[in-house]
Amino acid sequence: MDSTHPYAKELEIACLTVQRATLLTKKVLEAVDKGTLDKSDSSPVTVADFAAQALIIGAIHRAFPEDDIVGEEDSKALRANETLLERTWELVSSTHLDNESEALLYSPKTKEEMLELIDLGAHGTCNRENRSWVLDPVDGTATFINGQQYAVCLALVEKGIQKLGVLGGPNLNLETGRLHEDIVDQEGYGYQVFAVAGHGAFMRKMGTGALLPAHRIDSKPQITEPKDIDFVDCVAATSSNIVAHERLASHLGAPWPHTTDLWAAQLRYVAIAVGGCNTFIKIPRNASYRSKMWDHAGGMLIAQELGCVVSDLAGNPVDCSLGRTLADCYGMIVAPASIHGRLVEAVKQIM
């Protein structure tokens, strides 16, 4: 993509640090496969989450020290568990890109610095005054430990507006043209999907060193008929009302069941970008439910750059300036602009 846009440095650092965090998560999965870490408890997920957050925040904070950082984890569990702390530190201190690109990033030099960096993310928030990096070190923890699909996510939100998003899918295998939990990249490091506001969306294969060439993703076809809707969803999601989703599809005359089922919320945006789907809807089971910022920031931007509209269930734009959650966003509709309004009206009618 054109490197003259105003976020060129931010994008380069973001793509490199997501790629480095990808290498770390792959090391954890390899340790599980070899029996070094016990799959029956939560420790592999825990060390992957903490270690990836530390590496991502280390790189971002060094490059952009004035920026706020919003991350999912804090260091309490590591401070209380010496074994987890040692495992996490070993991963953080041993994971590097294998070429000169590593010099553009930063890693903590001590365990205490690692813990402090993790806590930077725990204290961050998005508002209308600041510039915030939002990250999810492992989106899809339940599927990560099973060697299925998961995502490493990083986005830049400036005064409540998404400016760039980078989603790394370390296990993404696109040979079938669709994303599937169990069809994974066994040999490589998956793909990155990324976007800069106003400049389109792109993807590249990930590797172990310098960033590989990227190519632009085509915009989504602007469908007008419900029969052309292709949903991505998750039957197992505890926060979504899958029965209501089915009722919506039936009301519209749209195909059901959905063609692609993915646990990680951010991967549903990837499925819209490169996995053959075009629509994602979330009708919560609980009226008080609000999504976490890190489950959607960046992914929403990618969908928008491809011609989709992202809104709450009433059709209102999503406000990213209200803290660590999408506090004013009840549910979500992501669909090509040409049919988004039909979905909003259908939701009103079935609810």
Results as ranks from 00 to 15, higher is better:
G168Y: 00
R128I: 10
L179H: 04
D49F: 03
M351N: 12
M351H: 12
A63H: 04
Y269C: 10
T95Y: 01
L164Y: 09
G147S: 13
S75C: 03
D182T: 12
M300W: 06
I302H: 00
R290Q: 09
S239Q: 13
Y330M: 10
G315N: 02
K282A: 09
L97S: 06
P221R: 12
E86H: 12
I60F: 05
G298V: 11
A264Q: 02
P170T: 06
H245A: 09
M206S: 07
T260V: 14
D68P: 00
A54F: 04
I56K: 05
S219Y: 11
R87H: 07
E113K: 12
V193E: 01
L16S: 05
P6T: 11
V344N: 05
P213C: 01
E10W: 07
A297L: 06
V70I: 15
A151C: 10
S3G: 14
F280Q: 04
Q266M: 13
E113R: 11
L156Y: 06
A273L: 04
R87P: 00
S240V: 13
L120I: 07
D182P: 03
T141P: 01
Q53R: 01
K159S: 08
T46A: 11
R247T: 11
L248V: 01
W294M: 05
E129K: 13
N146W: 07
L343P: 07
L120K: 10
A122C: 01
E10Q: 14
L91M: 00
H199C: 05
P317Y: 09
K34C: 12
G207P: 02
W89E: 02
T125G: 08
D33A: 15
R285F: 02
P257G: 04
V166G: 00
F64S: 06
V270C: 09
T208P: 03
V45D: 00
L322N: 12
M293D: 03
S42Y: 04
L29Y: 12
N127H: 09
L154R: 08
K282G: 05
Y150V: 04
G276A: 03
L179T: 01
M114L: 09
M351W: 11
T176S: 15
A103V: 06
C153V: 15
R285S: 10
A244D: 06
L104G: 15
V274W: 02
I339Y: 02
G198A: 05
L11H: 03
I283K: 02
G188S: 11
V235T: 09
D312F: 09
A265I: 14
H61E: 11
D49S: 09
G298L: 12
S101D: 10
A48K: 00
G323W: 08
I333V: 14
A31I: 06
V274D: 05
V157R: 03
P170W: 04
P284N: 03
H61Q: 14
D136H: 05
G276D: 05
A151M: 13
L120T: 01
A51E: 00
T88E: 00
I183A: 06
A103N: 10
L306A: 15
F64D: 03
G169T: 09
L326C: 06
A14H: 04
F202W: 14
H61M: 06
S288K: 12
A122L: 03
G188F: 07
